[in-house]
Amino acid sequence: MEGVNVSTHPEIPGEPIQTRTALLEKATATIQGFGPVNKIHQHLCAFHFYGHDMTRQVEAHHFCGHLNEEFRQCLIYDRPDDDGRLIGLEYIVSEQLFLTLPDEEKKFWHSHEFEVKSGVLFMPGVPGPIQRQDLEKVAKTYGKVIHFWQVDKGDNLPLGIPQVMMALTRDGQLYETLAKDVENRYDISFEKERENRAYIKGPDHGIHPLANAAGKGLQTVLKEVDCFKEGKST
């Protein structure tokens, strides 16, 4: 498997944007307000793997905004460029908020301690000391990631149902090829950053045993159900 697991960028079928359409969107962009989007303040790079399959790993670029000190919501793209594909989203909560979740919900959430301490989660373009101020907080949080577009499979369009994703929790999980690719592209060393972050602490109460799917696999399935509840007519 090793070596084939490299990030891919889908070639979406479709015509180039027509000039008329581009002009229209310039107009709407100028006139409209973008309140929720303007709230997005940071770019985090990390890796996710599928809840049922650790051997499928994806480079994930998070664009996050805070709703308050304990809650971030992030859009996830396959690359941080103009043509980035929106492949998923992540919610990040403080340990305190995580502990308020019902046990049944906790399985969806993964810990961030290892991702931070191993140096693998980073903020592209932000100097180490500044990054670490924020990562000290991130190391104590939990995240819930859903991907809707399986770019690692070569899907050129978002197909199928949403996938619950997990994150790295120990050495040996991440493909060397994926790690090296990111290190080269951003001219960083995970190993060196790991040393810089040695002082950072995880959740105060330790990583919750029900987080990270309690160590199990999670697989989404689609069920056909009745969507007619109360009855309405025109």
């Binding site: 498997m1 809840g51 049922h52 399959d53 650790m54 051997t55 499928r56 399985k107 969806f108 810990s111 149902i161 949403p162 619950v164 997990m166 929790t169 120990r170 050495d171 040996g172 999980q173 990583i207 987080a211 990270n212 799917a213 160590g215 199990k216 696999g217 999670l218 697989q219 989404t220 399935v221 689609l222 069920k223 056909e224 159900v225 009745d226 969507c227």
Partner: peptide
């Protein structure tokens, strides 16, 4: 008829222990 997504617990395909 409509659709709902459910989550089932399975064995994870792994390359190192988890978590």
């Amino acid at each position: 008829k409509g659709f709902a997504v459910e989550v089932e617990t399975t064995e994870m395909e792994k390359r190192a222990s988890f978590p």
